[in-house]
Amino acid sequence: MLLLLHYLGTAMRRQFQSINILNNEKGFLFPYTVFIATLLLLATITTISLLEGNQKMTVYQLEQVELETLRQLSSTALEKEWINDNLELPFSSRNYQFPNGNATIFYRSHDEKNLHLSIKTITAKHAEKVWLVTIPLPLEIPNLDDSP
């Protein structure tokens, strides 16, 4: 019994010594504080840099959507011009201006089934892309008035 009390007393003293080490005035706690502060600073800087990268990526994705929109608008405008004005092949180029940018369509070639074009789109923020597009021929809109 006496041995058990001695062992428990020794264990309790060791436990209190480890607590006292954290509270002594020799500066044992300072390295831990600096380490934790450094980790928090590193996490904050990493989060800020990730946020900046995501913001840049969002801007680039929005520009890509604008370029794709311009390509679709210019293709539709050419198809309408083909149907309404009977555009003759080959044509040199067609320029289209839209509120969010400009598009220029260049004729490349055609065969019996397809029209091969090059579309250069430029957004208002001066992002630019050249698309190689194939449009099936003949470009006709089906007549919806003849439905049964």
Rank of each mutant, 00 (worst) to 15 (best):
Asn20Tyr: 02
Leu42Trp: 11
Tyr60Ser: 11
Asn20Gly: 07
Ile19Val: 04
Ser74Pro: 02
Ala103Lys: 04
Glu25Val: 03
Lys26Tyr: 02
Gln55Cys: 04
Asn23Asp: 00
Asn23Gln: 13
Tyr60Phe: 06
Glu68Ser: 15
Pro99Met: 11
Ile21Gly: 01
Leu70Glu: 07
Phe35Lys: 02
Trp82Gly: 03
Ser18His: 09
Ser49Met: 06
Ser49Thr: 12
Ser93Gln: 14
Phe91Leu: 03
Val65Ala: 13
Arg94Gln: 11
Met57Glu: 10
Thr76Trp: 06
Thr47Val: 05
Phe98Ser: 04
Leu29Tyr: 00
Leu39Glu: 01
Met57His: 07
Lys80Thr: 06
Thr33Trp: 11
Pro99Arg: 11
Ser92Ala: 12
Leu67Asn: 03
Glu66Cys: 08
Tyr32Val: 10
Lys56Leu: 15
Thr46Gln: 06
Met57Ser: 14
Ser93Asn: 09
Pro99His: 09
Glu52Leu: 15
Glu81Leu: 08
Ser74Lys: 06
Gly101Tyr: 04
Leu22Met: 09
Asn54Gly: 14
Gly27Cys: 06
Phe30Leu: 11
Leu70Gly: 09
Ile19Met: 14
Leu78His: 03
Gly101Ile: 13
Gln72Cys: 09
Asn23Leu: 12
Ala43Cys: 11
Val34Ile: 12
Pro31Ser: 07
Ala103Asn: 01
Leu62Thr: 15
Trp82Arg: 04
Thr69Gly: 12
Thr47Phe: 05
Leu73Phe: 15
Gln97Trp: 05
Asn86Gln: 13
Pro99Ser: 08
Leu41Met: 13
Ala43Trp: 02
Ala103Gly: 02
Ile48Ala: 14
Pro99Tyr: 09
